[in-house]
Amino acid sequence: MPQLVTVKVDRPGHRPIRLWVPVLPVVLLLFPVVVLVALAAIVACLVFRIGAVRALGAGWRVISALPGARFDIEQGRTAVLVAIR
């Protein structure tokens, strides 16, 4: 599971943005929302006749495979970096 999401944004004429988001505390903070989203996903699975357990398992695999992903985009003096660890 991802531990830390790093976001860096550099724009000319603006103050650079540096965000280090610890995933676990944020998930705990948003736990009620996470539960609601999971319930909505289960209802959607039932409506579209998809195995809810399989779908949640596949979703969890996607989330747990995220660490190591890195998106780094630069154009001129503008740069955006999103890294997941």
Partner: peptide, 25 residues
């Protein structure tokens, strides 16, 4: 203006995405 895109995606994420895509009705 020079521009650069540098994306690194774990292969494990692609595999997980394939499993997720298999669930599309």
């Amino acid at each position: 203006e020079p521009s650069r895109v540098n994306v690194r995606v774990p292969l494990q994420l692609l595999r997980a995405g394939v499993r997720l895509a298999a669930l599309v009705p």
